[in-house]
């Protein structure tokens, strides 16, 4: 019932990087950006090759047997006690908050709980573990930010994104009204209840457009896909990016090319 209190570790020399399936297939740039940001902080990044998906889509759909089978395949990926960083509040929330429940009453319960305790959302990790200092090399711009619901409520990182953006001297961060309201993604929800989800994302896009910003950043690829996809289809004047891509592009000095 009570959320574990976050105790940030000291900055480690190595971390595991859990990319998530959406980043893997749709937004690998965001994953690369996250890895490079970590490396620039002097951290060696281990990318376990056998990672697939955290199991969340099946879990939230109620197919817990199937979710457990997939999640179990992830439990063996992190043998050393290094932190596990995830470029997503949603998958991070799944692993940190729901793995212990999913593996309760199984032989893997201890392991699942142990792994859950090592899960960090990447921007949170950059700010509160790496104490990152960013130097902005980009042109002046105005952006809005959408923090995903799971990043905000499950991982408790609502303050982190604005903090990072605040370090960028040429970036003017504006806040949309009802910033804390869901964009309507919700995984299979968007497919099961398309009208409701559509109504939610259309209002989210309107509030973003109304800030005057022409780009927004977000912590999660699901929200990105949803919001930017709606804006594109309906020709709304706003484009989106994962916050990690945005941070890397503005601070690495090569004009946005990765790896």
């Amino acid at each position: 019932m009570v959320d574990p209190i976050k105790v940030y570790p000291a900055k480690p020399s190595k971390v595991y990087f859990y990319g998530t399936c959406l980043v893997d297939m749709f937004y690998p740039d965001a994953g690369m950006a996250g890895i490079q940001l970590l490396e620039r902080e002097g951290i060696e990044v281990i990318y376990p090759e056998d990672q697939t998906c955290c199991g969340q889509p099946a879990y939230t759909s109620g197919y817990h047997d199937e979710a457990r089978a997939v999640a179990r395949a992830q439990l063996g990926l992190f043998p050393e006690d290094w932190p596990i960083v995830v470029p997503s509040g949603s998958c991070g929330g799944m692993m940190r908050k729901h793995y212990p429940a999913l593996f309760k009453d199984t032989a893997d319960d201890v392991k699942a709980a142990e792994i859950a305790g090592r899960i960090w959302e990447l921007t949170d990790f950059l700010v509160n573990v790496c104490h990152i200092k960013l130097e902005d090399l980009g042109e002046p711009t105005t952006v809005a930010m959408h923090t995903s619901c799971s990043a905000r409520r499950e991982m408790g990182v609502a303050e982190v994104g604005p903090k990072l953006l605040g370090q960028l001297k040429n970036v003017n961060l504006v806040e949309q009204v009802r910033a804390e309201e869901c964009c309507g993604f919700g995984g299979t929800f968007a497919v099961r209840h398309p009208e409701i989800s559509g109504a939610m994302v259309s209002e989210k896009v309107d509030t973003l457009v109304n800030t005057g910003a022409r780009e927004f950043v977000t912590t999660d690829c699901g929200c990105l896909m949803n919001i930017a996809g709606y804006a594109e289809k309906n020709q709304k004047p706003v484009t989106g990016q994962h916050i990690l891509s945005f941070l890397w592009e503005r601070t690495n000095g090569d004009g946005g090319k990765h790896s």
């Binding site: 990319g19 980043v23 893997d24 297939m25 749709f26 937004y27 690998p28 740039d29 994953g31 690369m32 090759e49 968007a190 497919v191 099961r192 209840h193 398309p194 989800s197 559509g198 994302v201 259309s202 896909m225 949803n226 996809g229 709606y230 594109e232 289809k233 309906n234 790896s259």
Partner: peptide
Amino acid sequence: GWTQYRTAPKLAAKTLHER
């Protein structure tokens, strides 16, 4: 239902695994 309101998500040319 997804593309009723949004463009379809675009698969990247290479997965993060491949990169």
